[in-house]
Amino acid sequence: MSSYFRITLQRSGIGLTKRTQGVLKALGLRHRMATVFYPVTPEVAGQIMKVKELVSVQEVAKPLSKEELKAERRPDPGFYLESAARR
């Protein structure tokens, strides 16, 4: 069974060492609240340990696409459209 780390950058790396900022760059975390998915491997775990103060991590079964991530953020519209009942 494969599982993935869902990594979200919570705190910016501005002003931290080149090494820390480099790890963020290598993980593809360019902006705060950016989310990336990586398979559970010792290499990725080591990278996360370098930036553990800046990120939040979850273990998920499968990675989400960009569209799915956007749909997650979309707020509840507060209404729904009724369809006509069949007569």
């Binding site: 559970v40 775990a45 340990m49 370098k50 553990k52």
Partner: peptide, 18 residues
């Protein structure tokens, strides 16, 4: 974060030095 990493790695019975 560390607990999450540890749990995920333990499921695959991997240990990481860090």
């Amino acid at each position: 974060v560390v607990a999450t990493l540890d749990k995920a790695l333990a499921k695959k019975s991997i240990t990481t030095k860090a």
